[in-house]
Design a protein around this nucleic acid. Structure first.
Length: 538
RNA sequence: GCGCCCGUAGCUCAAUUGGAUAGAGCGUUUGGCUACGGACCAGAAGGCUGUGGGUUCAAAUCCUACCGGGCGCGCCA
């Protein structure tokens, strides 16, 4: 399909060039909103009409005859519709050939070799306690974006930026100290803005049982122990969701290694740092920011932004040519600031893509106060609904949409989860394979016997997986894969109701088994990109 | 006050980024297994896309003014 799409695009581009001497930008073809309009649809006619001052329908008619000549055999027919759509119907031969290639190549059929070196940073929640449900969204979306990038042949590093330095950690340490210093039975006084989740007491308990601590409280690395504990909590939460980071990047180490100082002096040499009111400023307005930003406060402390400049510089120094950060909506004002620091290095700001993941609202009839720690923990969710259903829930909305997480629905009515609609398709396919008891489940010699509408319709949808991947990749929106899989499952269920696979005619059975096998390849491929294991039974 | 996101069926959301008759799921409702798994399929009802104006062949989408909701605007992290 990729090959075919490439060819059709090239042919159309050449026609436009030859006939009108115009170079148009891609894309030339899109998927029509409905099957009845064809397999591919083009609107170049309208763009041309504006330039050459002719009626779009006349242009379409001309292009149509030229396309028909050059795509003979590969295309069944070409339609022209209202204001100037050129709709193309792929021929049966092309579809069958693609099916056979897909069967042989399996998911390699859809892969690409983009070969970018990407550093994908996500979650990066402060290591001050376990993750809550909203954090899970970034974890899953980031993980799936990583899978998609890798599938298309990029080299991806999944990175968690640890804010293990600064005020929030101080507060956590003070909160634990409050527990440690309070005699059993008395009221614990948590400092203003401190942490009071149940885990804080757990940490205190663990430390007071530590021999080193009992032996010498002065030399004990209290801060380090506390961080170890909270980081392990986070890792456990992520693990239960099937998310693994290849790199945990410590802000503390960044500072200790003098990389922040180095980044500042780098900018200083470029004349972008100045002193005012006792503080050091970065002239970010030169690169599009609204105002200059402080990087070293007058008390001599570095700001968080200073670390961030150094951090992003470090990523680029490590050889990445594409940086992707997932941030919450509260950081949108921060985007220009960081981009300006990248431009200050003489690089294009496009190297950094920021994906804003909108908020998660939790809807539940139960009062939230059922737990002392206010937020609903991610680990509770995973315990209640399981890894796969939780992952799926997180992916059903576009990144920019608010996600309403209905806890009661997630727990009680898991049948309503569309994931099971997709899994059911897998189960039905497996069930037929079992019953058919065939060793090799496909044999390309049978493919040519496909002819029914339901068969060809399913085949068309299978090949559209390329477009699905393309749009998910360019928009960094995993939801496209979900939408595609739901559609594919629906088409499979329709096929299943209407056409029986195991029939007396060996040719028909063989052809339909091929179709099922290829459907299985695509659904499995899609589910694995989502980090969800396809089922055989349910 | 400034900036960003949002307002679409009773509910939760789509609409290929300006395209074709605004579509799905849940809920309501009518049908369908002596055939590969009924967690499925076929159908029905449900809409002035928050409101008014504008831009063009074409607007849920862009511009503008209101109405209503969410978030952000530190020498915090």
């Amino acid at each position: 399909m990729n090959d075919f799409y490439q060819k059709v695009s090239d042919v159309l581009a050449k026609i436009v060039k030859d006939e009108y001497d115009i170079d148009l930008a891609l894309p030339f073809w899109e998927l029509p909103p409905k099957q009845e309009y064809g397999d591919l649809s083009s609107m170049v006619t309208l763009k041309l009409a504006a330039k050459v001052k002719k009626y779009p329908l006349d242009i379409a008619a001309k292009i149509k005859t030229l396309l028909e000549k050059r795509l003979k055999g590969e295309v069944d027919k070409i339609d022209i519709l209202k204001p100037g759509f050129i709709n193309l119907f792929i021929s049966k031969d092309t579809l069958i050939n693609s099916l056979n290639t897909l069967l042989k190549e399996k998911d390699v059929f859809f892969r690409q070799k983009l070969k970018k070196k990407v550093i994908l940073e996500f979650v990066s929640a402060n290591p001050t306690g376990p993750l809550s449900i909203p954090h899970g969204r970034q974890a899953i979306v980031g993980d799936v974006i990583g899978n998609i990038l890798e599938f298309l042949g990029n080299d991806v590093e999944r990175e968690y930026y640890l804010n293990d330095e600064g005020r929030q950690i101080d507060l956590l340490v003070e909160s634990v100290e409050a527990w440690l210093n309070t005699p059993e039975g008395s009221n614990v006084l948590i400092p203003e803005g401190g942490y009071n989740g149940g885990y804080v007491k757990d940490i205190a308990d663990e430390i007071s049982a530590n021999k080193e601590w009992v032996k010498n409280k002065e030399t004990f690395d209290l801060r380090g122990e506390i961080l170890n504990y909270t980081i392990s909590l986070i890792k456990k939460d992520l693990e239960s969701l099937g998310v693994e980071f290849s790199n945990w990047f410590s802000q503390r180490k960044l500072i200790k290694d003098k990389k922040v100082e180095a980044a500042i002096s780098y900018l200083q040499k470029k004349g972008l740092i100045y002193e005012e009111e006792g503080a050091l400023w970065f002239a970010s307005t030169k690169f599009g920011d609204d105002k200059d930003r402080v990087i070293k406060k007058k008390d001599g402390e570095l700001t968080y932004f200073a670390s961030d400049i150094a951090y992003h510089k470090d990523k680029i120094d490590r050889g990445a040519n594409q940086l992707i950060n997932l941030w919450g909506p509260d950081h949108h004002g921060y985007i220009e600031r960081v981009k300006s620091s990248i431009k200050a290095q003489g690089l294009s700001a496009d190297i950094l893509k920021i994906v804003i993941i909108q908020l998660v609202n939790i809807k539940t009839k139960e009062r939230m106060s059922r737990r002392k720690g206010t937020a609903v923990l991610l680990s509770d969710l995973v315990n209640d609904v399981g890894k796969d259903a939780a992952r799926f829930y997180y992916l059903v909305r576009k990144n920019s949409s608010h996600l309403e997480f209905d806890l009661d629905l997630a727990k009680e009515a898991s049948f309503n989860n569309p994931l099971y609609y997709i899994q059911y398709a897998c189960a039905r396919i497996e069930s037929i394979f079992t019953k058919a008891a065939v060793c090799d489940r496909y044999n390309t010699k049978y493919s040519k016997f496909l002819k029914e509408d339901e068969e060809m319709g399913l085949l068309r949808v299978l090949l559209q997986f390329s477009y699905c991947l393309d749009s998910a990749y360019h928009s960094l929106e995993p939801v496209f894969i979900i939408e595609y899989l739901k559609n594919l499952a629906a088409v499979l269920h329709k096929f299943y109701e209407k056409r029986r696979v195991l029939v007396d005619d060996e040719n028909v059975t063989g052809a339909r088994l091929n179709l099922l096998e290829s459907t299985k390849i695509v659904i499995h491929c899609g589910l694995r990109l989502l980090g969800i294991e396809p089922v055989k039974k349910m």
